Computed example of a mutant assay.
Amino acid sequence: MPTSDDVMRERFLQSGDNADLPIVDAHHHFWDLQRNYHPWLRDLPRLPFRYGDYEVICRDFLPDDYFALAAPHRVVKTVMMEGEWDPRDPLGEARWATTLNARCGFPDAMSGQVWLDRDDVAEVLNEYQSMPLVRSVRHKPAAVARSEHTATFAAPGSMRCKRWRAGYALLEAKGLMFELQTPFWHFVEAVELARDFPGVTIIVNHTGLPADRSVEGLQAWRTALAELATCANVRLKISGLGERSVPWSVERNGPIVRDAIEIFGVERCMFASNFPVDSVVVKLDTLFGGFKSIVADLKPLQRLALFHDNATKLYRL
């Protein structure tokens, strides 16, 4: 029997109309701040943030809130990213998400919090193995400003840190992918990581964070992205392209999206919202509409891959 996903895919492939395009949002957050503790969303003063003032997202964000914003787009499945939950309880968010899924059907999969250089890493990964929702984990490696980065950078907690890498080495046996959020100038370390552990899939978050929109900055981002793309075990999420105090637009972000797809290929990219975080800089309707507009010239099967099929396969939805 065909599933509802099959029916929607076929409808879109026949019509080619973006209004029929089924979407898997490959990276978003849910949080209930009345019940759960996310330090960066609850504590004062607020932390420095790349989009500036983020007070607007320091409130509950649950499936009903998400889907109210997602209309009129056909979001059929979602992948929840860990939201910097209380680090003293790394398993708590996945347990909460499991109850949320049981109650309302979302999220369909998630990435769990982990601290690869902590003593509890093996215990946490063992628990994630038994949680049906968890497909990947995230630990943002130590990073520095581009002006401070050197070819020998190997700070504690970085991708070259022996203790961090020892935790990372456990992922393959646990069947877990790794979500990498780091600025593009750290991709030299990411290439080493990908090549040293070819059995672990790395999913680059937020397009490699091309925040420097100067000609030189974007060329450096493209060069770093192209080097990382030589590693067959790396995938790319196209998301997180907001700029502080600059309206999100197709004109600003279209060239970056098209470059990313050209570098990694349609088959290794997927679109994601990063909501509610990116609501600081863009409306969800504008974001999905913008992504659709940017790739409107691609064939229906290619658009379906970017918005639905690649994430469905990668996260086993």
Rank of each mutant, 00 (worst) to 15 (best):
P2A: 14
S4H: 13
S4W: 11
V7E: 09
M8P: 11
R11Q: 08
R11E: 15
S15I: 13
D17K: 11
D17M: 10
A19E: 14
D20C: 05
D20I: 06
I23P: 00
A26C: 12
H27C: 02
H28N: 08
H29R: 06
L33T: 10
Q34S: 15
N36W: 10
L41D: 00
R42Q: 15
L44A: 09
P45A: 12
R46N: 07
L47G: 06
F49R: 06
G52I: 05
D53Q: 14
E55W: 05
D60E: 11
A68I: 04
P72H: 05
V75F: 01
V75S: 01
V76C: 13
K77T: 06
M81D: 09
E82T: 01
W85F: 14
P87Q: 11
R88S: 13
P90Y: 08
P90R: 01
L91F: 12
L91M: 09
E93A: 10
E93D: 05
E93Q: 10
W96Q: 04
A97M: 13
T99Y: 04
T99L: 12
L100V: 09
L100Q: 05
A102R: 11
F106H: 15
A109G: 15
G112L: 04
G112Y: 02
W115V: 07
D120I: 04
A122S: 14
E123M: 13
E123K: 15
Y128C: 08
P132N: 10
P132C: 10
L133C: 15
S136G: 14
S136A: 11
A142I: 13
A143Q: 08
E148G: 05
H149E: 09
A151S: 15
A154P: 02
P156F: 04
S158V: 09
K162M: 10
R163G: 11
Y168K: 01
Y168G: 00
L170W: 07
K174H: 14
L176R: 01
L180A: 00
T182H: 14
T182K: 14
W185T: 02
W185E: 06
V191I: 01
R195E: 03
D196Q: 14
F197P: 00
F197I: 03
F197E: 02
V200M: 00
T201W: 00
I202P: 00
I202A: 00
I203N: 01
I203G: 00
P210R: 08
A211G: 13
S214A: 09
W221D: 08
W221V: 12
R222Q: 11
R222W: 13
T223G: 01
A224M: 07
L225N: 02
L225M: 09
L225A: 06
A226G: 09
L228A: 00
L228I: 01
A229C: 14
C231V: 02
G240L: 03
L241Q: 05
L241V: 08
L241I: 06
E243Q: 14
E243K: 05
E243W: 07
R244A: 11
S245P: 03
V246I: 14
S249C: 04
D259W: 12
F264R: 01
V266P: 08
E267C: 00
C269R: 02
F271G: 03
A272Q: 01
F275I: 03
P276A: 15
D278R: 03
V280R: 12
T286K: 10
T286I: 09
K292E: 15
I294L: 11
P300I: 06
L301D: 15
L304Y: 13
L306N: 07
A311C: 04
K313Q: 11
R316L: 15
R316C: 14
L317V: 08
